[in-house]
Nucleic acid binder design. Structure first.
Lengths: 90, 90
DNA sequence: GTGCGCCAATACCGTTTGGGTATGGCGCCC
DNA sequence: GGGCGCCATACCCAAACGGTATTGGCGCAC
């Protein structure tokens, strides 16, 4: 699992639609589909229900969403925190 | 920044020595050195002081270490949590 | 002060990963 | 049934990553 995959997952969950999520992430749709499938296969869980109108979160996806957001928020905070440390040293 | 880089950083911080950390991570020393340098450059902060006997954490590294551990722990917990969800559904 | 040992850093190469384009298959709506 | 929107697949190319070989710096023993 990678941080990019978590970003992708959150975007798809929020958009409910792979195409829109791909546009938001500035990548094209096929690699996004692949990354989501890859994430599902390495977790051993289906995260989304595919429908002709888009995707919907399955229970495992509902569990993952808030945790993924927290990890991503921690990482973002961590980057900012370090920037402050370096600023203080200059 | 990637989760692998955080794993590498923690290993180097704990071993105080790139060669030993590389062995523990089951990779060779040069790629590890490169990844640490890459992490430092994208954070814009030096994390380690290089000495002829190994490496020591600089202040930014001291800040990063507990936060990196937390992110990695969250990710590990997240993987286990999802495995439980799928087990419950089988 | 010369040689040896341990360390991180660099150079170069092969493989793997990841994203892009093109296309297919499927359901829905008019 | 023709057109449209969706996700999935096939194929290709570029970037990222790890491995081996090697260099350079520094301390230590003698």
């Amino acid at each position: 699992m990678s941080l990019d995959q978590l970003h992708y997952f959150v975007a798809v969950a929020e958009e409910g639609n792979m195409g829109r999520a791909a546009r938001r992430l500035h990548i094209s749709q096929p690699p996004l589909t692949r990354q989501i499938r890859h994430l599902e296969s390495e977790l051993g869980v289906e995260l989304f229900l595919r429908t002709p109108r888009g995707v919907r979160l399955l229970p495992a996806g509902e569990v993952l969403l808030p945790r993924a957001r927290r990890v991503l928020a921690d990482v973002a905070a961590l980057e900012h925190g370090l920037r402050d440390v370096s600023d203080r040293r200059e």
